[in-house]
Design a protein around this nucleic acid. Structure first.
Lengths: 119, 119
DNA sequence: CAGTATCCAACAGGATACTG
DNA sequence: CAGTATCCTGTTGGATACTG
């Protein structure tokens, strides 16, 4: 794993690092993004499949978040020109790699819980 | 780095993992938490020092976020009983370990930017 | 210096109903 | 099935002024 200080240009040009960090934060934050990505980690899904996977999400929010994730290169929306039209959502390769980030967040979170308990 | 599927009980008891993940997200999200943690990574600081470090943050927001970070075990607030009273903020050990998470977020973010560019 | 107090705007998200 | 359209509430954050 490359550390931030390994990047030679971090001091010379910090803006790109701030942007990259914000990108990561943006695809994770909000009430529904992680549940949606989690649902799609188990495979290609249709709109109503995702809705069934995530209790209490409304179609409005699912639609909004899927558009946002698509715009940010996390989700591919595939339209099959059958009758009736079939639409499927799947994760991009980039999105699948997010599991590394989630693992590190999980590890820190579990450690932190222990630390806060005793402290 | 331990991966989520390495935890034997992840399927039996997923709630603690959801909580841990949310903890991590909660100490990172919002407009000011990361800048504040970043400022304190360079050492112990006083209220107005942090304010000088972070352009445009108001005392209201800095006060609110510092309280929140303290409550979540990220920041220690130390009061020196001199006259006038001196107050310093420093990161907890747990907060310092966040740099691992930030590194992984940064790496993913930089990769993702490249992937989205070409895609 | 280290904050509070008040008021206000913007946005995230929810409830419900409707559509090609 | 795969969404939109409206309307509404709560939270986040900003502006400005003030305090021990």
């Amino acid at each position: 794993m490359k550390k931030i200080m390994d990047f030679a240009d971090v001091k010379a040009c910090p803006e790109q690092f701030v942007l990259a960090l914000n990108d990561t934060l943006n695809v994770l934050t909000g009430k529904w993004k992680l549940p949606i990505l989690g649902s799609l980690l188990f495979g290609i899904k249709r709109f109503t499949d995702i809705q069934k996977n995530i209790p209490k999400i409304t179609p409005r929010m699912l639609s909004k978040e899927l558009k946002d994730l698509e715009l940010n290169g996390m989700v591919k929306r595939v339209v099959y020109d059958s009758t009736p039209v079939l639409i499927e959502y799947e994760l991009t390769d980039s999105a699948k790699k997010l599991s590394d980030v989630i693992d590190s967040m999980l590890n820190w979170g579990l450690d932190h819980r222990k630390a806060v308990m005793v402290g």
